[in-house]
Amino acid sequence: MRTECLLTRLERVFARLDREPERPAHIDVPVMSRHRVVLFASTLAFYAAIVWAVVITSWLVRLDWQVMFFRPYQQWPEIHAFLDYYVVLGQRGPTAVMVAAWLGWRSWRQHTLRPLIALGVSLLLLNITVGAAKIGMGRLGPHYATEIGSNEMWLGGDIFPSGHTANAVVTWGILAYLASTPRARRWLSALSAVMSLGVGLTTVYLGTHWLSDVVLGWAAGLLILLALPWFEPLITRAEAWVFSVRESWRARQGVTVPTPATTRSVGTSPLRTPAQEPATATAHDTIAARTVRSPLHLTPGLHPTCPDRVPVTPVGSRRPPHSDRMPRGTTPARPLTGG
Rank of each mutant, 00 (worst) to 15 (best):
V214R: 06
S196A: 15
G200S: 06
W210H: 09
A190C: 10
V214Q: 13
T202F: 09
G207C: 13
V194K: 00
G200E: 02
S180Y: 11
T202M: 07
H209V: 04
L206V: 01
G207W: 13
D213L: 11
L191H: 02
H209F: 02
L206T: 12
T208H: 15
M195N: 03
P182E: 06
L197T: 08
S180N: 11
D213W: 07
S189V: 01
V204T: 10
A190R: 05
L206W: 14
H209K: 02
W187V: 13
L201C: 03
R183T: 13
L197P: 04
A193K: 00
S212T: 14
R185G: 10
G198D: 00
L211A: 14
L206A: 10
S192W: 05
W210S: 07
V204Y: 12
G207K: 15
D213F: 07
R183N: 07
S196H: 07
V194R: 00
A184G: 13
S189F: 14
V214F: 09
V214I: 02
L201Y: 07
L197H: 00
Y205G: 14
T203I: 03
H209I: 08
G198T: 00
H209E: 04
H209P: 01
G207L: 04
V204P: 15
H209C: 00
A179E: 08
W187G: 03
L191R: 00
G200V: 10
R185C: 07
W187K: 10
H209N: 14
R183P: 05
L197S: 06
T208R: 10
V199L: 11
L191Y: 13
S196F: 08
T208S: 15
G200R: 03
W187D: 11
V194Q: 00
R185F: 13
S180V: 03
T208G: 12
G198Y: 09
T208Y: 15
V199P: 00
G200N: 08
L188V: 03
S189H: 01
W187M: 08
V204F: 14
M195H: 06
V194F: 04
D213T: 14
V204A: 05
G207S: 08
S212R: 08
A193E: 02
S212L: 11
A184K: 09
A190F: 11
R185P: 02
A190M: 14
A193M: 08
G198W: 04
V199R: 11
L188K: 02
R185A: 10
T202L: 05
T208F: 12
S196E: 04
V194Y: 01
S189K: 02
S180P: 06
G198V: 03
R185S: 12
R186W: 15
R186Y: 06
V194H: 00
S180Q: 11
W210I: 00
T181M: 01
S189N: 05
V199T: 12
W210L: 04
A184T: 07
P182F: 04
L206F: 09
L206I: 06
T181E: 10
G200I: 04
T203H: 07
